[in-house]
Design a protein around this nucleic acid. Structure first.
Length: 483
RNA sequence: CGGGGUGUGGCGCAGUUGGCUAGCGCGCAUGCUUCGGGAGCAUGAGGUCCCGGGUUCGAGUCCCGGCUCCCCGACCA
C-alpha cells in the first residue's frame, strides 16, 4: 500500500501545526468553510461534540442554581452606547442592521457581539426589590464579531456559546458567583474534556470591556500557544449604573445591583483538537465522544450475516451499559478504509470482528489513544471495553498534563525569556512589576501576553524582580503567545 | 485593514510563445471480483475555466477593473 495513494494526507503536527489543525478539522468532518465569508458550517460530527460539551456544562449550570432563557439577537445602538468601555471594546467588531422591510431604520441595530447591553436593559425592569435577587440566568446563543482573520472554531465571525448573566444584592455574592463559575469551567474542562487548565485573573489591559475583574481558565495547546478556554467576569456596578438596575434593600434604601457574566464558546472544539489530536487525527475523550465505540466487521463471502449478528449482540450489550456505539456495517468500504476514517474522527475504541473471531469466539479491541490492540474472548470484551472508557479518559488527561508541564518554564532572565518564547514557546512563569508599561513592552518585543495571574503560584516572593524592568515584582504571572 | 499568494467538474491539480472537441488523479454512479490498515477491473455521469470590461480572426491563456479564499501581520472568545 503506497502512501502516495492516500488522498488528502494530514500533514504532521511537526511540519506545520496550523495546516495539521485545519486538515484534521475538515477530514474529521467537524466543520468546513462556507460561501459566507468568515462563517463556518459545523457538521454533524462536530456538532455532536458541541452537544456533549453543552449538555455537560448545562447540567453543571443547573446544579449551581441557574436557569436558561433567551434574549434578542439584535441590540439597539443606544443600548450599546450606555456603558462607555463596553462599546469602545466591541464597536469595531459589530455588524449592524440598518434596513428592515425595505426601509432604513431610524436606529441601527447591532447583531449581538455579546449580550450584556440587551440583557441589562431587560433586567432593569425585573429588579425592584432585594427579594427579586439573585437573578441566575444563562443563555445558549449565537453571537457575531466581525473578525478580520478567521480560523475554524478558534475565531469565526459567527459562533455559538453560552453566556451567563447574573444579578446580585451584594458585592461579595457577585464575586463568589464569578469564582464559582470559573471553578465550574475548570472542573468541566478537566473532567469531561481532559484538558488541564490554569485558573487566574486577567490583567487590566486584558480584561473584558466593561468588567471590574476578569477571571479565566487558560489551556496550553500542543504547539505551545495558549488558548483562553473560558472567562468569568465580575462586572461590579458598571452595568447596573449604566442601565439603571436598582433595587430597594431591606433597609429601605435604593441600591445598584452587582453583576457577573461568564462564557465559553465553540472555540472549545478547537481546543479539544489541539490538545488531544495526533498525526492520525483526533483523539476524543470518551466522556465527550459522540461515538465511544465503533464496530468494524471484516467481511468474507457468506459470513456477512453471522458477522452482523455477532456485532449486533455485542453492540446491544454495550448500549445496555450506557456506551454510545456505532456499527459500521456498510459493505462498500473495506476494513482498512474504515480503520483510518474512525481514527481521524478519534473514536476512543474500535472493535474489529472477522471470520477468525467467529471461529474463536473472540474480538479485536483497539484503543485510539495508544493504538494498542488486544484480542479478547467474547465473554470478557464488554467489561474490558467499559473499563477502557475510564482508562482512556484518564490517559488523555495525563498525557495533556504532562505535555503542558513539559512546556512550562521559568526563564532566569530576560534573554532566556526571549529565547524561550521564540523557541519552544509554552507557558513562561515570570515576576511582573504590575505596570501596564512593562506588559505592553513585553508584548511589543515578543508578542507574548500575560495570560493570567494564576491563583496558585501567582504571589510574588520576597526579592522577586520583574523579568523585564528589574523593578520589584507585584506578582508571578504566566506569559505565553496565544490564539 | 496592510503585505504576499490564489481562483479551471465535488476535492487536488496540469493546461507551453494566445489555436482546433479543456485534460489528469481522487471522489461519485452501475456491475463483477474483493474485504484482518485507505482494494482491482470495466463502463459511465459531471465544466457559465471567479465576475465584468477590453485587445484579437480566435482568450482558460494577454490587458484593465472588481471580487473570493488562503497565508503572514495589526485586532479579538
Amino acid at each position: 500500500m503506497s502512501s502516495e495513494k492516500k488522498p488528502e494526507r494530514i500533514p504532521s503536527r511537526e511540519e506545520n501545526f496550523s495546516e495539521w489543525y485545519i486538515s484534521t478539522v475538515r477530514l474529521a468532518h467537524l466543520a468546513d468553510y462556507t460561501p459566507v465569508k468568515g462563517s463556518m458550517v459545523i457538521r454533524p460530527y462536530g456538532y455532536g461534540l458541541w452537544e456533549n460539551m453543552r449538555d455537560q456544562l448545562d447540567r453543571r449550570f443547573k446544579e449551581t442554581g441557574h436557569e436558561n432563557a433567551y434574549f434578542p439577537l439584535l441590540v439597539p445602538e443606544s443600548f450599546l452606547l450606555k456603558e462607555a468601555e463596553h462599546i469602545e471594546g466591541f464597536a469595531p467588531e459589530c455588524a449592524w442592521v440598518t434596513h428592515g422591510g425595505g426601509n432604513e431604520l431610524e436606529e441601527r441595530l447591532a447583531i449581538r457581539p455579546t449580550s450584556e447591553a440587551i440583557i441589562c436593559s431587560i433586567y432593569k425592569d425585573w429588579v425592584q426589590s432585594y427579594r427579586d435577587l439573585p437573578i441566575l440566568i444563562n443563555q445558549w446563543a449565537n453571537v457575531m464579531r466581525w473578525e478580520k482573520r478567521t480560523r475554524l472554531f478558534l475565531r469565526t465571525a459567527e459562533f455559538l456559546w453560552q453566556e451567563g448573566h447574573t444579578v446580585h444584592r451584594t458585592d461579595k455574592e457577585a464575586v463568589e458567583e464569578t469564582l464559582q463559575m470559573l471553578d465550574v469551567y475548570h472542573d468541566f474542562l478537566e473532567t469531561e474534556m481532559a484538558i488541564p487548565a490554569i485558573r487566574g485573573k486577567k490583567t487590566e489591559s486584558e480584561k473584558f470591556a466593561g468588567a471590574v475583574d476578569t477571571y479565566c481558565v487558560e489551556a496550553l495547546m500542543q504547539d505551545g500557544l495558549a488558548l483562553q478556554a473560558g472567562t468569568s467576569h465580575f462586572l461590579g456596578q458598571n452595568f447596573s449604573k449604566s442601565f439603571g438596575i436598582k433595587f430597594l434593600d431591606e433597609d429601605n434604601t435604593e441600591k445598584f445591583a452587582w453583576q457577573t457574566s461568564w462564557g465559553v464558546s465553540t472555540r472549545l472544539v478547537g481546543g479539544l483538537v489541539m490538545t488531544h489530536g495526533d498525526d492520525n487525527g483526533l483523539r476524543v475523550p470518551p466522556r465527550i465522544a459522540p461515538i465511544q465505540v465503533v464496530f468494524v466487521p471484516i467481511y468474507k463471502a457468506g459470513l456477512e450475516g453471522p458477522l452482523k449478528e455477532k456485532i449486533g449482540k455485542l453492540a446491544a450489550a454495550l448500549r445496555d451499559r450506557g456506551i454510545r456505539v456505532k456499527e459500521d456495517l456498510t459493505e462498500n468500504k473495506r476494513p482498512g478504509w474504515k480503520f483510518t476514517e474512525w481514527e481521524i474522527k478519534g473514536v476512543p475504541v474500535r472493535i474489529e470482528v472477522g471470520p477468525k473471531d467467529l471461529e474463536k469466539g473472540s474480538v479485536c479491541v483497539v484503543r485510539r489513544d495508544t493504538r494498542e490492540k488486544q484480542f479478547l474472548p467474547d465473554a470478557d470484551a464488554i467489561e474490558v471495553v467499559v473499563k477502557l472508557m475510564d482508562e482512556i479518559q484518564a490517559n488523555l488527561l495525563k498525557t495533556a498534563t504532562e505535555a503542558r508541564d513539559a512546556n512550562t518554564h521559568t526563564p532566569k532572565d530576560w534573554d532566556e525569556f526571549k529565547q524561550m518564547i521564540e523557541g519552544t514557546k509554552g507557558f513562561l512563569w515570570a515576576p511582573w512589576d504590575g505596570t501596564e508599561e512593562t506588559e505592553a513592552r513585553i508584548k511589543e518585543e515578543t508578542k507574548a501576553t500575560i495570560r493570567c495571574i494564576p491563583f496558585e503560584g501567582g504571589e510574588a516572593q520576597p526579592g522577586d524582580k520583574d523579568i523585564f524592568s528589574g523593578e520589584p515584582a507585584k506578582h508571578r504571572v504566566l506569559y505565553a503567545k496565544s490564539y
